[in-house]
Design a protein around this nucleic acid. Structure first.
Lengths: 183, 183
DNA sequence: TCGCACATGTAACGTGTTACATGATTCA
DNA sequence: TGAATCATGTAACACGTTACATGTGCGA
């Protein structure tokens, strides 16, 4: 019985439920209002995902009777859910993660408070900065492969990626500095 | 009869076929080797997408007999395909595009050579820079809403987004400068 | 009374992911 | 003989997207 990997959306929900128990509607509002909006806030996405998490016993819910309106169901993580989230948060990060799933890595960082382990977080940031540096070098070598004869647009588009990845590396080192100051 | 919107992957394929006629295998190699690798290079993704494009008469193909190995089918865009790509490239960009689909905007820029219209490209970059500025302001106002009592990680994660978007705006202005120099 | 905010859900559809299948040629 | 490269494809599955459905209470 291999444990099935939750989707990123499911991890996002699981992480948010660690901050405080909430209903599907609350979670949807967060997705709609904040930068997490890259994940869908539509009911057809959120409610089924919560059901899947509940079926796998990673969260539990109870109907809140107090409200006068339609009853809301408030969820919070189970011990197994916390365990799984921590595993996800502390998973070593690969080159491929940086190249194709940087957003997911940033989401992982956003929930790192759950680990409550400053050493782990610093290691995460150090590793992130290093992998980004390596990937930037790779992007730069790709730039050399683009024929100079053709139009400039593809080359410039690649440069946009380099700009953004460099900024991410700067961010990681800035964040690292924050954690070392607070030591 | 509403025209169905192709997926981003389909637009990526259509754009690459404008650079030169190629086979599915060639296109997969590009996705696997370059920064476009955020789009899948797996056969189960690429070949069906090419079939869909062919069925909608946006590309055509012909089997290349010359090679000794298994025959390869080379595709190139039809007039309708060119038309549709140009429409996509010159579509005005929205705030939402910047917030959630910046990668797609960069892909559009990468193919802008097809338009062969320096004015349009400059307008694209100007608009992009402006929308990014507006979105950065929104992210900054979101930062103020995060309670200072809680952990620093969510705030820092938001900051990562701000770093990357600022870099994208810098890139857009740099690129704009290139096009204005060349007159 | 009209519409909005609250609150949860289902159904249809298309697409991406993964794994499998096939088959020829080249190289160790 | 076996593995790798070339080259195209199919099938099962799960997920996200969109649209629809339902029902209450409050304010304009």
């Amino acid at each position: 019985m291999k444990a099935k990997e939750p989707t990123v959306l499911e991890y996002a929900l699981l992480g948010l439920l660690h901050q405080q128990p909430q209903s599907g509607y609350d979670l949807r509002k967060i997705f709609a209002a904040t930068a997490l909006g890259s994940y869908s806030s539509s009911p057809g996405t959120v409610y089924p995902a919560l059901q899947r998490l509940e079926k796998r016993a990673l969260i539990t819910g109870r109907v809140d009777e107090r409200t006068a309106l339609r009853p809301r169901k408030v969820f919070w993580p189970t011990a197994a859910g916390s365990e799984l989230l921590r595993l996800w948060l502390s998973r070593p990060l690969s080159q491929d993660d940086v190249a194709r799933r940087l957003d997911e890595l940033m989401l992982r960082f956003a929930f790192h408070a759950v680990l409550d382990d400053r050493v782990a977080t610093k290691e995460f940031l150090r590793s992130l900065a290093g992998e980004i540096d390596a990937y930037v070098r790779e992007l730069e070598s790709q730039k050399d492969l683009i024929p100079k004869a053709g139009p400039v647009h593809p080359r410039l588009a690649l440069e946009a990626g380099i700009y953004q990845y460099r900024a991410a590396a700067r961010w990681a080192r800035m964040a690292l500095g924050r954690f070392e100051d607070e030591g």
